[in-house]
Design a protein around this nucleic acid. Sequence first.
DNA 1: AATCATATTCTTGTATACAATAATATTGAC
DNA 2: GTCAATATTATTGTATACAAGAATATGATT
Lengths: 218, 218
Amino acid sequence: MESRHADRIADALEELVFTGQFNDGDRLDEIRLAKQFGVSRTPIREALQRLVASGIAEQLPRRGVFVRQPGPVELMEMFETMAEIEGVCGRLAARRITDEALAELEGANRLCREAVAAHDTDGYYRENERFHHTIYAQSGNSYLANQALRLHRRLKPFRRLQLRLRGRMAQSMAEHEEIVAALKAGADDRAAKALRKHVGIQGEKFRHLMTELRTAAQ
Amino acid sequence: MESRHADRIADALEELVFTGQFNDGDRLDEIRLAKQFGVSRTPIREALQRLVASGIAEQLPRRGVFVRQPGPVELMEMFETMAEIEGVCGRLAARRITDEALAELEGANRLCREAVAAHDTDGYYRENERFHHTIYAQSGNSYLANQALRLHRRLKPFRRLQLRLRGRMAQSMAEHEEIVAALKAGADDRAAKALRKHVGIQGEKFRHLMTELRTAAQ
DNA sequence: AATCATATTCTTGTATACAATAATATTGAC
DNA sequence: GTCAATATTATTGTATACAAGAATATGATT
């Protein structure tokens, strides 16, 4: 448990924004939130500061704090950045990965396949996450790994949508195999390319989903 | 001018940390800083929150906020990450760069050369910065460009040291030429490689400098 | 003298009070 | 009825007050 109310509230607010409880441009009213969380404005303000710092909200001086949901363009930019950063992690990991980590990747892939067979999306999601996080860590660069983790976490709610597309999980698995093969071979450019493509497809699928929703709304 | 004291103080503290006025592990005493800046603890606390969020300081609950200067290992990790991210920007920029931006890069390079000839390190530094920032922007991905800018800014005080090495500026110029050539040709992998190498060398030079200082201290 | 338990002081985290500015409502002129 | 100027209200930003926990000092015991 967290010792400071401000942290707990920041996490809660972050979750609320990520799960779409707030719309873009909504004002985060200090007094209302204070009542809602049963605290004074002080910890609320600290929490809001944290949201602003992480780009989830925007602060207009003397006007207030407003949630900032990424639009379609920014989302695609974030997916593209994720693809490139994962590619970088792959490149470095190909040169530095340990045998234990390779075994872990293969283990995660095996559990992923089982989850696909069992239609266990949560299980698939969990092991897929382990797969990617392992590659970040194996970049041997903890600063880079942290940046990758941050963005991965930020994109989490959007990635989930895209994974539900028919046939996507099976296709994704094949890409995972290629990634492991490249890492095993120590082929850095190949690993980078495979990861860029893998995550790039996620972005493509997501864009497809967005345009579909858009036309459906008309 | 900034309307909130907290922002002004955060900028000031950031500058103090970046210029080495604080050592790693130093506690940022709220009361002392409040007296120093002539304000109450409230804006100081907000400023400290900002430092913590940007990774310049660390917060231990109920213990205080402590400055976190990157050690040699983390610095090398940051340089490596910068090299890879610039490579990514280069790859994307090669596919998207405008003629105007290419002209601007060549202009920056010309001014750089003149600055080298005139031993004008500040001028060189300014144009070098413009060169890199232009490439970030030309990635056509403002999210990525922002991430690149953040890290570039964080590494600024350390990059400056390395640029003073004899012959480094001339070598750096040659690398800039190759980067522009690759971008002009629209060769994405070549541009990525050139930028990775260019910034990678900065890291190498910096490490060299660190070990030199280390042995000199003994 | 060294060590553990207790008491004291100091600092953080939160609540409240106040000042300054922005948003809103009210009034008056046309 | 519409617009502008002023008055009112509401909200942010800062200062201060207070509560809880951590660090330090004090003292008792061996």
